[in-house]
Computed example of a mutant assay.
Amino acid sequence: MEAHIAASILPLLGWAVHGGILTRRLASARRDPLTGLHTRAGWTARAEHLLRRHPHAAVLLVDLDHFKTLNDTHGHAAGDAALAETADRLRTWCGRNGTAGRLGGDEFVAVVRDLAAADLDTLTTALHRPLLYEGVSLPLAASIGACRIAELPVPTLTDALTAADAAMYAAKGRTRRGSRTSH
Rank of each mutant, 00 (worst) to 15 (best):
V62E: 03
M168I: 04
A57V: 07
A78C: 15
S137D: 14
T156K: 08
W15C: 13
A45P: 01
L157I: 03
L152M: 00
G173E: 12
P155N: 08
Y133A: 09
A45H: 09
R129F: 00
L132F: 03
W15Y: 14
D63W: 14
A29V: 03
R52Q: 14
V17T: 12
D88M: 06
A58R: 01
A141L: 04
G95I: 01
I149W: 11
G14K: 05
S179W: 15
R102M: 05
L51D: 07
R180F: 06
I144D: 03
D32W: 02
P33C: 00
A77D: 15
D159F: 07
A27R: 15
T86W: 11
R24K: 12
E85L: 14
A141F: 10
L83S: 13
A164C: 03
L152I: 05
R176Q: 06
W93M: 03
A47L: 02
I149D: 09
Y169G: 08
M168E: 03
T44Y: 07
H76V: 03
F67D: 04
L120P: 02
A126F: 09
L34V: 04
R52M: 09
A87W: 09
A84P: 05
T181C: 14
L90F: 05
T122K: 12
E107A: 14
R40V: 02
E107T: 09
A170L: 03
V154M: 10
G95E: 04
V154R: 15
A116Y: 03
A41L: 13
H18L: 15
S28T: 13
L34I: 05
A142E: 05
V17M: 13
R96M: 11
A29W: 02
A160S: 06
T124P: 02
D32I: 02
T162G: 10
L131I: 01
H183K: 11
H76Q: 05
P155E: 02
T73D: 08
H66M: 06
A164I: 00
S179L: 12
N71F: 11
Y133W: 15
L138Q: 11
T92F: 13
T39P: 01
H54D: 11
